[in-house]
């Protein structure tokens, strides 16, 4: 069976078809890592490119992500069994004092669609909790979100604690959220800034390529 059908099912956001086709590929003896790398990830990559080119829009991307998840539900146990490594691990969270998590959740969905393992700490996350999770999970990137000017200063606290714990260079940071700007990211010494979820994926890819794990 061709991988193309699964790739198109993901691109079209057809979760039921994606799940059925993944099961069929597995049953026909396809190697799980090949299903992931030759059908699913390329499918999401096309979705990302079409989104950047404004051929499709956020709801279409989310439907594709839903299809990707449906396929991953079939494949994930097999990837674990085969010890297939993810593209990398990233810790995500909304900073201390802030409860807005929609933007962060969207970034999480996009990163998972790109093959990353996301350790989502939720919202109102203490600075050291980000760093502890990165160390425990072997994640080389911490992503932080904040909506308010009153909470975005917490991002500086995380960056500061990374330096104090002498992890700078091994654990990198990316920040985003309604109140955050490129200038603010530079000011606090964050390694990257993303204005939207797709940009976040691109920035994380670049950081992971330079520094895949702690």
């Amino acid at each position: 069976m061709s991988f193309d059908k699964l790739r198109f099912a993901i691109q079209d956001g057809d979760a039921a078809a994606a799940k059925t086709l993944t099961s069929a590929l597995v049953d026909s003896g396809s190697v799980p890592a090949e299903i992931l790398n030759q059908a699913m990830l390329p499918g999401m990559s096309v979705v990302g490119a079409r989104f950047r080119d404004r051929e499709i829009f956020l709801p279409d991307v989310l439907l594709a992500a839903r299809a990707m998840k449906a396929a991953m539900a079939v494949l994930e146990p097999l990837l674990l069994r085969d010890r297939v490594p993810s593209a990398g691990a990233i810790v995500l969270g909304t900073v201390r004092g802030d409860l807005h998590d929609i933007g962060k959740n969207l970034v999480s969905v996009m990163l998972q669609g790109a093959g990353y393992r996301v350790v989502d700490l939720g919202s109102d996350v203490e600075p050291d909790a980000f760093i502890d999770a990165a160390v425990d999970e072997g994640a080389s990137v911490i992503g932080m979100s904040a909506l308010l000017t009153t909470t975005m200063t917490e991002m500086a606290a995380v960056v500061g604690r990374i330096r104090e714990r002498e992890l700078h260079g091994r654990v990198r940071t990316i920040v985003g959220g309604a109140a955050v700007s490129e200038a603010f990211a530079c000011e606090i010494g964050a390694d990257a800034y993303a204005s939207d979820a797709m940009t976040a994926v691109d920035r994380v890819k670049a950081m992971m390529a330079a520094n895949p794990s702690i």
């Binding site: 956020l58 709801p59 989310l62 439907l63 992500a65 839903r66 998840k69 959740n105 969207l106 969905v109």
Partner: peptide, 9 residues
Amino acid sequence: KDDPALAMM
């Protein structure tokens, strides 16, 4: 429940 599409909408 892993339904970000409906959650976001």
